[in-house]
Amino acid sequence: MRILNTLSKACLVMLVAVALALAAKPATAAWKPSKPVTILVGFSVGGAMDTAARLQGEVMSKALGVPVVIRNVPGAGGRNSVTILNRSKPDGHTMAAINLPGQAVNQAARGMDPDLRTFTWIGRQVSNPYFMQATTKAGKDQWTSLKQMKTAKKPIKAGITGTGGNTFPISVITANLVGFPVEFIAGFKGPELITGIIRGDFSITNLPLVKRWTTAVQSGEAKAIVVYLPKRHPKFPNIPTGVEQGFPELGSSSLVGQNLYALPPKTPPEIASVIEEALVKANNDAALKEKIEANGNIVAPLSKQDTTKLVADMLALVQKNSALLKKYIK
């Protein structure tokens, strides 16, 4: 009888164990995408964000077991990817590469939806440092350092693409932090900013620190004034930082252009973890890193938590300067 009791108890324990195991299975099984994952890119094909997304997408596709498709939705300085992502289902099949601080301007200075803090941030695509260059055209105002610019009596003409994108907030915040008067001339396309600085259409411009945008500096037709990094860029060691020139705030990571990956708001954590894992695999691929960095961008992986914090910091910085930014936004 005792034996029977013991056996029935053992059976009961086993049944409970099996039941618990069965109940626990769905919770521990990793989520897997059931169809291709789309990465929204708010810029045209061939740009830095697009190229990095395509390269990372190849590796992520192997990790996720489904194709990763790049969908370019250019326009409005990258905003299209934000609005489409906000409307997408939080099922892990749509993510976006988002450019900051450019997109922070729409929220903090234009008061537009959505709140970027509601997105499920999963990591960094690339870090995209910017640098300032000044014309060396004879007969035009010539600037050689930030300290000299601080002494300007009349507004310094700065060429920008427009009030969308990263160039605008970086230019406004820099002028404010250094304390020089500035007048923006907007409406140039990227390549026109190079020919414009050579021609002397404006005195300064801020552009991403990639090889193609340093062509005027290389030829001596423009002078690189500052790179917005805490330390000099290893590929461009001749460009001084703001920290060296006595403006430590210019080394803040909030002033570095950041392309960050996000999932729609309210994406379940287990889905975000799977996507993050695939992104980590892509970022650890040495050959891929070399190809992305050939362009001048920096592959610097960031965890979900750190990415979320970076977004909050960038929003706070833009918010702090929103009164200035609003002066140029109609």
């Binding site: 061939g46 390549p191 190079i194 090889k211």
Partner: peptide, 14 residues
């Protein structure tokens, strides 16, 4: 110049 004159050229540059 090393700067793209058109979208097709941007692709080529990449």
């Amino acid at each position: 110049f090393g700067i793209p004159g058109s979208l097709a050229m941007a692709l080529l540059l990449s």
